[in-house]
């Protein structure tokens, strides 16, 4: 299996069944569980690629990152860039940010039946039964919010907390998943892609929301996956968006 695309989200029997169904037409599938998110590493803000406990090689993927943005408490932009620091990628911003964001296009992938995913278009793999263009998005709330989190430029899919973030784990928090800036139904949301990556996702309703208990008294990385329509039907049959929202709750005094 290609190491850059190693987590098909469909089981083998399901894949076989899908392959049969897709003999007639290409079917929408969620194919890639990995995402990008921000987390603290040695005091600094780092950009992470992976899923679950797999903190994978972000340095080699850094050329794929299209956009790194930082914002102050009024959502005014702050100049920011990614920097390789040994084995990790850290974010250097010109001022202390309140919010940071990143976009990483992850290419076009196709597969035939249950074969491995390959970095090919439909034109390059005419017998493909599934084909997708993937993009990863990440937003992190670094500093305290003085106003609700805004839809950010470049975040085609974005998770927004619909209310104040609680100070203690276990409290319910409603999230709105935006697609092109508007609430979208059908996005699959999990509460913790680091510590519970295989959780059964909640699906956003007509208002684009899901409500979940805040899971961790520490780093929380919420993930939303949304399959959008293709804009290049000759090259791929869908666009798969994987978005994360990261924030932290403070721990108790020591």
């Amino acid at each position: 299996m290609n190491s850059r695309f190693r987590s098909p989200r469909i089981s083998l029997p399901r894949a076989v069944a899908l392959a049969g169904a897709m003999a007639v037409s290409l079917t929408a599938v969620t194919a890639e569980a990995h995402g990008i998110w921000f987390a603290q590493r040695a005091k600094q803000l780092a950009l992470i690629y992976g899923v679950g406990a797999d903190d994978l090689d972000m340095v080699k993927r850094l050329p794929m990152v299209e956009k790194i943005e930082a914002y102050d408490a009024d959502y005014q932009p702050i100049k920011a860039a990614a920097r390789v620091a040994g084995a990790i990628v850290v974010i250097d911003s010109d001022a202390q940010p309140t919010v940071v964001a990143a976009v990483m296009p992850y290419g076009i992938w196709s597969r035939a039946g249950t074969d491995e995913w390959e970095r090919k278009t439909l034109q390059e793999m005419p017998n493909a039964t599934a084909s997708t263009r993937n993009t990863k998005y990440a937003v992190s709330i670094v500093g305290p919010l003085s106003k609700p989190l805004a839809p950010l430029p470049g975040q085609v899919v974005q998770i927004i907390p619909a209310g104040p973030i609680p100070t203690m784990l276990g409290a319910a928090l409603k999230y709105v998943v935006l697609y092109n800036g508007k609430p979208v139904a059908g996005a699959k949301v999990i509460n913790d892609m680091v510590n519970d990556p295989d959780a059964r996702p909640e699906v956003t309703g007509a208002d684009g929301t899901v409500t979940l208990p805040v899971r961790n008294q520490g780093l929380n990385v919420i993930r939303a996956e949304y399959i959008g329509p293709t804009d290049q039907p000759k090259l791929y049959s869908q666009v798969e968006h994987t978005a994360t929202l990261a924030f932290t709750l403070a721990h108790a005094p020591e």
């Binding site: 919010l145 973030i165 100070t167 924030f247 005094p253």
Partner: peptide, 17 residues
Amino acid sequence: AFAALGLSAPVLAHGST
């Protein structure tokens, strides 16, 4: 401090505060 305004920043940790 901003603690009451939504997100709590990393407020309490190691050493004197």
